[in-house]
Design a protein around this nucleic acid. Structure first.
Lengths: 106, 106
DNA sequence: GATATCCATAAGTGGTTACTTATGGAGTAA
DNA sequence: TTACTCCATAAGTAACCACTTATGGATATC
């Protein structure tokens, strides 16, 4: 199984909010920090986690850094979920609600 | 946006391992505990989180409880990821690598 | 009955982590 | 240069969480 750091990255509500803001267009760190109820360093730290999970990339322009979502990390997560989904659906379709009546080993 | 407790539930490596074991067929708590390197109470606690996220259900049979994956929680997570994916791809196709040259407000 | 198995919950603990404030480097404008 | 903006990093802290052991209820077996 892949590293799936994207899963842990998106599990945090604040980071998920950040990512959702970045999924359509780019934002600077300052823009993100003023809208969220956390400090600028907190935003920078979250963005680093999102970067490490390859969910976002950034681009410097002067002193500002424009962050935006990138498909890489999300594609990996999407493939993983899809694999699970196929397996679960298949097993569910087989539908063995009564498990094999294994008794405990004496 | 939905609650997405499934995201947090699957973010933990141990819980992910548990879920991956349950995605094809049912297992008792004891079976899971003996294979994983954690105690039985730890497994029970993890299963509760997976249950609350509607990723698994259980079925009592005597003193044993058979756990198995259920599509509900995963379907919700899958829809969420798919929404993100569409948005990211669309924005990425639009491809505005050079952000609008906004200058700082004086 | 007595005893053993299976499991959930309670309670406690160490490690992680999401925050804070403080600080400084890099770039811009006067 | 000086002064200002933007941002990343350092350091510290409080809250959370994934684990542990202890325990007891429910069921099965003797």
């Amino acid at each position: 199984m892949p590293a799936l750091s994207a899963l842990a990255a998106l599990a945090d509500p604040t980071r998920r909010t950040l990512y959702e803001r970045l999924r359509r267009r780019s934002h600077t760190v300052g823009e993100l920090a003023t809208r969220l109820r956390v400090s600028q360093p907190a935003v920078s730290q979250h963005l680093k986690v999102l970067r490490d999970a390859r969910l976002v990339t950034h681009q410097a322009e002067g002193t500002r850094r424009f962050y935006r979502a990138t498909p890489e990390g999300l594609a990996e997560l999407r493939r993983y979920i899809e694999t699970l989904w196929d397996d679960v659906l298949t097993a569910y379709a087989a539908d063995d609600p009564a498990p094999p009546a294994r008794r405990r080993t004496p």
